[in-house]
């Protein structure tokens, strides 16, 4: 009976494989949101005035605050990777907790934004919404759909970061086995990337 080890076994720990896999997954995410951006641009092309008027309803200040929150949280994740690579587990964990706090702050802010609009009756099926001119309905539907899907990604990303914190505490994620942190970080940055486009397209077009 032969005993030999394939040098290219699929069962080895291979950070490069998981990173490549993560990037490929991010590509699918880009195209997932990409489909929505196509819808957005097409409808914007044929309803540009209505989109413009509808965007006055959004609060630039709140959008800007959320942008700052996300960019900062991206930095703390990136720094957590640096910290773990340098072997400073404690610091890395703290940075990740800060990231989580930012994620929650983002969601709270989003919650208020949505509820203000819903109080004004701007939601599919509500009175004010039904009275809007045609293109504006599309704008708000896309607004809810895209920011909603984005918020969902924030939640998923936060859960992953939670797992990373646990992993570092238990010693499963270390400077030598950093894949989980790196990949969660990549995912988090992608969420940030998408917001970078959502923000000007919904809040800043007026």
């Amino acid at each position: 009976m032969a005993h030999f080890v394939l040098p290219n076994s699929g069962h080895n720990y291979d950070p490069e494989s998981s990173k490549l896999g993560m990037w490929l997954f991010l590509f699918t995410e880009i195209l997932l949101f990409g489909g929505l951006f196509i819808v957005y641009f097409v409808y914007r092309t044929i309803n540009s005035d209505a989109f413009l008027r509808a965007s006055y309803e959004l609060n630039i200040t709140m959008g800007t605050i959320n942008t700052i929150i996300l960019i900062t949280s991206s930095m703390t994740v990136a720094m957590a990777i640096t910290a773990l690579q340098k072997g400073k587990e404690k610091f890395a964990i703290n940075l990740l907790w800060i990231t989580l706090l930012f994620a929650i702050a983002f969601l709270i802010n989003k919650y208020f934004e949505w509820s203000i609009k819903i109080e004004h009756g701007i939601f599919p099926g509500m009175e004010h919404y039904n009275g809007l001119e045609t293109g504006q309905k599309l704008y708000f539907f896309l607004y809810y759909f895209m920011t909603g899907l984005h918020a969902l990604h924030i939640i998923v990303g936060a859960i992953f970061i939670g797992f990373v914190i646990k992993g570092i505490q238990e010693g499963n994620v270390t400077a030598d086995r950093i894949s989980l942190l790196e990949n969660s970080g990549l995912y988090w940055h992608l969420v940030d990337l998408i917001w970078i486009y959502l923000f000007p397209l919904f809040y800043l077009i007026n």
């Binding site: 991206s74 990136a78 970080g185 990549l186 940055h189 992608l190 940030d192 990337l193 970078i196």
Partner: peptide
């Protein structure tokens, strides 16, 4: 986006 991808990612 390029900044985020190049440095953070």
């Amino acid at each position: 986006a390029i900044l985020v991808a190049y440095y953070f990612m």
